[in-house]
Amino acid sequence: MKIVVTVKQVPDPNSTQALESDNTLARDKEVVLDPGDECGIEEGLQLKEAHGGEVVLVSMGPERARDAIRKGLSMGADRGILITDEKLAGADALLTGRALAAAIKAESPDLVICATESYDGSTGMVPPILAELLGLPQLTFAKKVEVNGTNLKVNRQTADGYMVVEAAMPALITVTAAIAEPRYASLKGIMAARSKEVKQVSLQDLGVDGGGPAETIESVASAETRKAGSIIEDDGNAVDQIVKVLADAKVI
């Protein structure tokens, strides 16, 4: 089976984040492969190991997003496609979806794997947009995936448990961090990744029109912050103080 995994380079979740003057995310910070995407790649690799086929990584971003693809290739993915274009700077979810859909359509995969949402944007809107544009059913928030011939079955996370959802492939799934523990790239994998193909394409190559932005950021303000209250060291009396706060709040 042919599997496409979408991947994104994001500011390192462990570093301080900042905005550029035009209110897009500052990407000159340390950047990494989105940790959620690592789980998606891992799931793709496990499915390939069980059923055979190929894992293709598709990313959209500036040239250096090639590093994120390279990381996935060193985990064991077969090849990558990088969509890079000046017109994509600050692209919204719809344009991102259009660009990714065009690149993925050309691959005609059996399965598309996305993370439920990116670490930096957290809007979670690209996967359903992508599913619609590709004309695929979407099985979202998957924490377990089973493939049997062309039948796909997932355990989909819900607020109080999960539901079992089934569809015929081709299909798109989004996966949570619970899906699989990502493997570390071996030295051999890192060496092998150097010779794997990463094809770079532009919007023109894909036949996608940039268009105007669907949303505009008008302003960015610091959110209201709560004031700190009192901080005490526990010298044995902390419990009494907590009980007092609970009583004042009328919960006991």
């Binding site: 355990n155 448990g161 999960y162 959802v165 089934e166 299909a171």
Partner: peptide, 13 residues
């Protein structure tokens, strides 16, 4: 297409 076969409650909240 995406057919829900079963719902499982895990949280015993």
């Amino acid at each position: 297409r995406a057919h829900i076969l079963e719902r499982v409650t895990e949280a015993s909240e």
